[in-house]
Design a protein around this nucleic acid. Structure first.
Lengths: 148, 148
DNA sequence: ATGAATGCAAACGCTTTGCATCGTC
DNA sequence: GACGATGCAAAGCGTTTGCATTCAT
């Protein structure tokens, strides 16, 4: 696994140091959307002396090379995820912060139409749907029934 | 105009002070996507002694009451716009930063499908398409032909 | 030995907050 | 006079940067 990731870094022109490998591996394994601080916490178990600055510098490099994506759901601080094989969009629960990935290929076509009408050449897009997840809906329902 | 805006504030439960009116009016007239600093600069011509803190406090209040929307295009600092009558999405030029609004009603239906599959109840959504606008495309073309 | 990578702490930029002052009813 | 609104300056917070040190070659 680590060997494979090391190759990925090398082939992207990133020198695979121990720290960088830890960051990339953590992000790849977690499959989540982690903040820099969260990554720092996790990576320290593998590489205890690593500093937050290295996390940020590594994330920038990985992002630059397209190995990692940066998001700012809810306009909070940045969260990072290992770049998935194919693009997907996100459902975000505004109550508990849970993020669910989905993809909806038709959107790719719709956006083309909007861009063409405005003479834009598309580079990327971002679709985020904010709502309340099933768990939070249930909890809300229970809470309100208790109140009666 | 100012009278009308004053009524809007009052009916939203916001006490329409001189400063708040200036901020709201500036945002309504500009029709753009302004940063807090830009708003501050513009508002000072109407209300010279206003501080940046008041801008932020007012924007929060307006946002809370649904009169203003906050965006973070390109993961930059926040930009604000007076809430439009109907929801629209944004095309953002990654080269010059220009923002074009568009709406694509079909997207509303697509997102419902995605949310339903994941048992989410939708509160809002955000679709941003990043690309290169016509002007920047032309400039690029000229630059590259000059280089030959 | 040389240049890249790192840790630490200081700096940064946008935003928020504490507090004394001001304005309004 | 009371209370909310404001300006100012300081603090906060995520992120970036300068610099001395460490690491790899």
């Amino acid at each position: 696994m680590a060997q494979r990731l090391s190759e990925d870094l090398k082939s992207s022109g990133i020198h695979p140091t121990q720290q960088r490998l830890s960051v990339f591996q953590t992000l790849t394994e977690s499959k989540g959307h982690l903040s820099a601080e969260e990554i720092h916490g996790l990576v320290k178990s593998k590489t205890p002396r690593i500093g937050l600055a290295t996390i940020y510098r590594t994330l920038h490099a990985l992002k630059e090379k397209g190995l990692v994506e940066e998001h700012r759901f809810n306009d909070e601080f940045s969260r990072y995820e290992a770049k998935p094989a194919k693009h997907h969009d996100h459902l975000i629960c505004i109550e508990c912060g849970k993020v669910v990935e989905f993809d909806q290929p038709v959107i790719e076509q719709l956006q083309v139409a909007a861009a063409r009408d405005n003479h834009f050449s598309i580079v990327s897009h971002r679709l985020e749907i904010y709502g309340i997840c099933e768990t939070c809906q249930k909890r809300r329902a229970e809470e309100s029934s208790l109140r009666l």
